[in-house]
């Protein structure tokens, strides 16, 4: 877009220096892009081929050890480990569920938001935008308290007598079996439930903001027409509204999915180590006691490639659906 604007400026009758400043602008943008994106990425890529010195640090080199470790495990070829595949799998699993959940919950909210008065919409949007200033750490701390045995949901269930009631009718055993209870009480930390809940909460405001433009542009007369022809609200949603906003729905889900692939704090706090993601593994490699930056970098490159792959697949799918 900036390029076409610059071309427009260049073709417009005017002094020659406009052309020069347009080129300078483009060069500047390119430089910013290089410095902010490409250089750090190339740096990570270069480190990922580095050499780890066992029991000490690492040095630059050119070896594929760290990629091989990701795919087959450190002890390969003696034994095979799918540890890092599993980590990548949980990255995708949590991010996908949380992104879809956030969009699914944001959709009805945003729809009704766009039906509010101008003032109502403004107030809600300001609240949502200001909630974006909360850091992940802060949100995780909040949910940590809300899900704690003494102060949170387990205490509430206990006070309401639900804990004792489920124990009486024998359902409590089931919660213990799936890891959502200790012998004493309900227990939501650590659990996949808490992880997905917090991740969805984290991106829900983004989901609303992403869906808002599309839903606010919906022509109310279409809905009114469907209603006058006798369609029930659910049928209207299914046959009129959803098809109209399908692309924004898919697009925001994909964007949030990629955003959530890198979630770190939520996963370290709420997920059991058996469900830890690649982001945690990357951090443990780079900053943990092994100081294995090359392996951390190799995992980052693979996560990036995976994210790119999903975005590409998503684009293909929505393009195919649109045609």
């Amino acid at each position: 877009m900036s390029a076409s604007a610059a071309e427009e400026a260049a073709s417009a009758p005017g002094p020659a220096h406009t052309d020069a400043s347009g080129a300078a602008l483009r060069l500047g943008l390119l430089a910013v892009l290089l410095v902010l994106c490409l250089v750090p990425f190339l740096f990570v890529l270069a480190i990922s081929f580095g050499h780890k010195i066992e029991g000490a640090g690492w040095e630059f080199g050119f070896e594929f050890t760290h990629y091989a470790r990701f795919f087959f495990g450190a002890a390969w070829p003696e034994s095979f480990s799918q540890l890092y595949w599993q980590r990548l799998g949980y990255s995708v699993y949590f991010a996908a569920i949380a992104a879809v959940l956030a969009v699914a919950l944001a959709f009805p909210f945003t729809y009704f938001l766009t039906r509010l008065s101008r003032l109502g919409q403004t107030i809600w949007l300001v609240i949502l935008l200001s909630s974006l200033s909360l850091s992940e750490v802060f949100i995780v701390m909040g949910w940590d308290i809300l899900l704690s045995a003494r102060s949170g949901l387990p205490a509430l269930l206990d006070a309401l007598g639900i804990t004792d009631w489920t124990k009486e009718i024998g359902w409590f055993r089931w919660f213990r079996d799936v890891g959502l209870a200790s012998p004493r009480n309900f227990k939501f930390k650590t659990s996949g439930f808490a992880t997905v809940l917090t991740m969805a909460y984290l991106v829900w405001p983004y989901a609303v903001i992403l869906l808002y433009p599309a839903l606010s542009r919906l022509d109310p007369s279409l809905i009114e027409a469907a209603r006058t022809m006798g369609a029930r609200p659910l049928t209207v949603t299914r046959t009129v509204i959803l098809p109209l906003v399908r692309l924004p729905l898919v697009g925001s889900s994909l964007l949030l999915f990629v955003f959530l692939l890198g979630t770190y704090v939520t996963v370290t706090v709420f997920a059991d180590p058996s469900q830890h993601t690649l982001a945690v593994s990357i951090y443990d490699s780079v900053r943990g006691s092994t100081l294995n930056a090359p392996f951390g970098a190799a995992q980052s490159v693979i996560l990036l490639v995976a994210a790119g792959g999903f975005l590409l697949a998503g684009r293909r799918l929505s393009a195919a659906a649109a045609s």
Binding site: K52, E54, G55, R69, G73, A74, A75, S81, L83, T290
Partner: peptide, 10 residues
Amino acid sequence: YLDKETFIQE
């Protein structure tokens, strides 16, 4: 922990 760090960690 140092001499076998990769093995033990993994």
